[in-house]
Each structure stands twice: as structure tokens, then as C-alpha cells.
Amino acid sequence: GEVDGKDYFFVDETDFKRQVRDGEMLEHAHVFGKFYGSPKGPVEVAIAKGQDVLFDIDWQGAQQISNSALQEHVLSIFILPPSITELQRRLEGRGQDTAETIAKRMQKSWDEISHWSGYDYVLINDDLDATEEKLKTIVTTERLRRSQQPGLVEHVRALQTEFEMNNDLQVIGK
């Protein structure tokens, strides 16, 4: 039910491998028999406009992005389940995977969880609303970092120029 250009951009395996080879992917992986990746171009454009880009990727993809040319813009958040039992219940409750796929995901989950300490923030998703609020707080706070505010340097320079011009006018008027 996923739509090309909305949920994902679907390409054939040959084109995907070419994009990886040509450095057009910000991150990529082969997971559960399928190729996944994030094209670099649209991400760079969005970041240049000051927009946030959200990735739902495994730890290897997160490392690839963190080690990319965009690393100064990366904020990594790992969301832990409250328990392994609850993780399995949630996967089964989605109703979109076969029992075999769920078993594979559960097996892979420990490998993912074992990399929790490589993230900037870690949340335990034991209450969806509370976790969402914490996530919003983290993102809002990080947006306020100097390095994440496009145009801030130019704004400060404009203030400095204005101050200097006003200061020059005061000196002339004395």
C-alpha cells in the first residue's frame, strides 16, 4: 500500500546500486532481503532551507549519516521499548508482518538495542504521549543551537552594521 514518491521512492536494484556507487545515497542498507537508502540531494536541500529531516533507520544507517558531510546537523535519538515482551506485542499488534518477519525483527532487535549508547539521546517509550513530548522538547532545544539556525550569522552582522551606523551618527551629531 505504499505510494512511490510519497512513502518512498522506489527504484530497481540496478539503479539503487548505481546511486550507492555514485555517492548519491546519504545512507543505505540491505535489510530483510530488501535495499533501503536515503537519497542525499533532497536531504541537503531541506537542511539548507532550515527544515528538519526525520529518519527511521537502523544503527548502521545512523552511523553513516553521522559520519557524512551533514554530521553537524545530525541529532540522533534512540527509542527503546519498555520491555522485549512489549516490543513483540507491538510488532504483532501492527498486523503488517508475517510471524516469520516478526521473528526476524525480534532477533535483530537486540543487535539494534546494543548500540543505544552511540546516540545523542535515548528515550524509553513506555508512555506514547510522554515520549512524544520528550521528543518534541529535544528537537525544539536542538533547533535553537547556533549551528542549526540558518541566517543567524547574517542577522548578527546586520545588527552590528546598524549599531555602527547609529554610533557614527551620534558621533557626528555631537
Rank of each mutant, 00 (worst) to 15 (best):
N166Y: 11
K134H: 06
A48H: 04
D22C: 03
L87E: 06
E164H: 10
A69T: 13
Q148G: 01
H73I: 01
R90A: 07
V31P: 01
E154T: 07
D127M: 07
K104M: 10
A46V: 05
M165K: 14
M106R: 11
D15C: 03
F32T: 00
D7F: 04
E112V: 13
G95D: 10
H28T: 01
F10S: 12
A69F: 09
K6T: 12
L80R: 15
D4F: 09
L144T: 08
I47V: 14
G151C: 05
L54F: 11
Y36D: 00
M165V: 12
A103V: 02
P150W: 10
W59N: 05
Q51P: 00
I84H: 15
G1R: 14
R105P: 04
I113G: 00
A46H: 08
D111A: 15
Q170L: 14
E27P: 00
W59H: 13
V43T: 11
K174P: 03
L128N: 02
K104Q: 12
P39V: 07
K174M: 13
T161D: 15
V43G: 03
E2H: 14
T161K: 15
I65D: 00
D97K: 08
D22M: 04
K108E: 08
D168H: 14
R145Q: 07
E24A: 11
H73A: 04
V171L: 13
Q63P: 01
I47E: 01
G173I: 14
G5C: 05
E154G: 10
A103H: 08
I124F: 07
Q96S: 14
N167Q: 15
I138C: 09
Q160I: 11
W59L: 03
P39L: 11
R90Q: 09
R145T: 00
D126S: 11
E142S: 14
T14C: 04
T131R: 05
S109V: 05
K49Y: 03
Q71M: 07
R143P: 00
F9M: 10
V45D: 11
L128T: 05
N167R: 15
P39N: 06
T101P: 00
G33N: 05
I84P: 02
G151H: 05
T140V: 04
L26D: 01
E133A: 13
Y8A: 14
L123D: 03
A158H: 09
G50T: 00
L152N: 06
K174T: 13
Q148L: 07
I172G: 07
G23L: 07
H73E: 03
M25E: 02
D120A: 14
I65G: 01
M165Y: 13
Q148A: 07
V122H: 13
V122Q: 10
A69D: 15
S147H: 07
V53D: 00
E132Y: 08
D58T: 09
V31A: 05
Q96Y: 03
R145L: 02
T140E: 01
G41E: 11
L123H: 08
Q88E: 14
A103R: 13
Y36T: 04
K104P: 00
V45L: 12
A103L: 04
N67W: 02
Y8I: 08
D52S: 08
L80T: 07
G61V: 03
Q88S: 12
R146V: 00
A99R: 10
V20W: 01
T131C: 03
R90H: 08
I77P: 05
I113L: 12
D4M: 07
Y119M: 02
Q19R: 14
E164S: 05
S114D: 10
Q51R: 10
L80Y: 13
A158W: 06
S76M: 06
